[in-house]
Design a protein around this nucleic acid. Structure first.
Length: 381
DNA sequence: TGGGGTTAT
DNA sequence: ATAACCC
């Protein structure tokens, strides 16, 4: 069993006729017998591409997607002018004074488009695993085997390209490899195995060297509908219970709307936070979760106005588990998550169908404020 | 530095 | 039930 990576040349959105630029990494490899063949599709600057679909008039301009004080991603026009992913807005504007910034804190359009891409891939082959919003692994073994039956043999399917940029190799490993003089997949393939094992340790060395030949044992696990729905918001400071309530209520409202669209019912509620003074870096989060009481479950799709208040109460209890009353606090982030999602008793259809609707446009958003049923399109499957 | 998500413990 | 890790 072998996982082979292949670069996707170009993916087309059916209705928009948009071309997606697959990242130029990974190269192409193929091999025939008794191995699985996996396509790894990694969309580049995904959020920026979604915005360019929504606003075609901005296509040729340097475009960045902003969340709070950073540019999380940008299109190639901006990139050529020096803007980078996760760059501070101030720095980005210095590098590129004409940079057009769009707010990307609401992930709805990206989430919807992301699932449309996955669904599109699933049409050619059902074994698709998602990783984040912009990566998909597709097990195309059967497709390849059928194709090979129609050809003479595997001779014409040569390995052709050995450049890696950043795939499964993080910054640390990258530097270690660089020190060893390994800069390309080809170097990695031909590097003395014994030396590599001494430098990186046996497990990592063997894994990387197998990867360099396009070999990967890990199976493709089809993703299906999301296992959790969450919303979060970062802020400079949130230091009173009233502010906590405000923020939680806003997150909850959006989540309830999403749950409604999804059709499943959550059985677990979680609150996560990041403290302002957390000395151990900004990445540390604390969370508390609890099961949802059964009597609340049934209220989920009845438009129950008490539901929001009840959930808010629960969240506040979770909050007090981490931040006892009377203790002063400063929060950088609050996150609410529903998980353990189950199909309600009488349901007939899976919930992934929801994601097949139209991409919302900025105009519709501005006009509506909230999603209106009339603008939704019936699922195509 | 943001706003997500899944898996391992 | 919580942390750790992925994008």
């Amino acid at each position: 069993m072998e996982r082979l990576e292949e670069m996707e040349e170009e993916e087309e959105e059916e209705e928009e006729e948009e071309s997606w630029e697959g990242e130029q990494e990974g190269g192409r490899s193929a091999e025939a017998s008794r191995s699985r063949v996996i396509v790894h599709l990694d969309l580049d600057c995904f959020y920026a591409q979604v915005e360019m679909i929504r606003r075609p008039e901005l296509r040729a301009k340097p475009l960045g997607v902003q969340q709070k004080s950073i540019v999380v991603t940008c299109n190639y026009v901006a990139r050529n002018l020096g803007v980078r992913k996760l760059m501070a807005v101030e720095e980005a504007k210095e590098k590129c004074p004409h940079l057009v910034l769009l707010n990307g804190e609401d992930l709805t359009p990206y989430r919807e488009t992301s699932y449309r891409v996955t669904e599109l891939l699933q049409e050619t082959c059902p074994l698709v695993e998602r990783l984040g919003f912009d990566e998909n692994f597709v097990d195309v073994t059967e497709l390849v085997e059928k194709r090979l039956e129609q050809h003479e043999g595997p001779e014409d399917l040569a390995v052709a390209g050995h450049v890696y940029g950043n795939r499964g190799i993080g910054s640390k490993t990258f530097k270690r490899l660089e020190t060893l003089g390994i800069e390309t997949v080809w170097h990695l393939q031909s590097f003395p195995t014994a030396v590599l094992e001494k430098e990186l340790g046996l497990p990592l060395a063997r894994r990387l060297q197998r990867l360099s030949f396009g070999e990967d044992d890990s199976p493709v696990a089809p993703s299906g509908p999301p296992r959790s729905l969450s919303e979060e918001e970062a802020f400079k400071s949130c230091s009173s219970e009233a502010q906590v309530k405000e923020n939680l209520e806003k997150l909850l409202l959006n989540l309830l709307e999403r749950l409604h669209q999804d059709g499943r019912r959550p059985h677990t509620l979680r609150l996560a936070l990041r403290r302002g003074s957390s000395a151990s870096g900004r990445f540390h989060r604390e969370s508390r979760q609890c099961p949802l009481p059964p009597h609340l479950l049934h209220r989920f799709h009845k438009g129950d106005s008490n539901l929001l208040a009840s959930l808010l109460e629960l969240l506040l209890k979770l909050f007090r588990k981490m931040v006892p009353p009377e203790v002063p606090f400063r929060l950088n982030l609050l996150s609410v998550s529903f998980s353990n999602l189950k199909e309600p008793p009488g349901s007939t259809r899976g919930s992934i169908g929801f994601y097949l609707k139209e991409i919302s446009t900025p105009h519709q958003e501005a006009a509506g404020g909230h999603q209106e049923a009339s603008q939704l399109q019936a699922p195509s499957r």
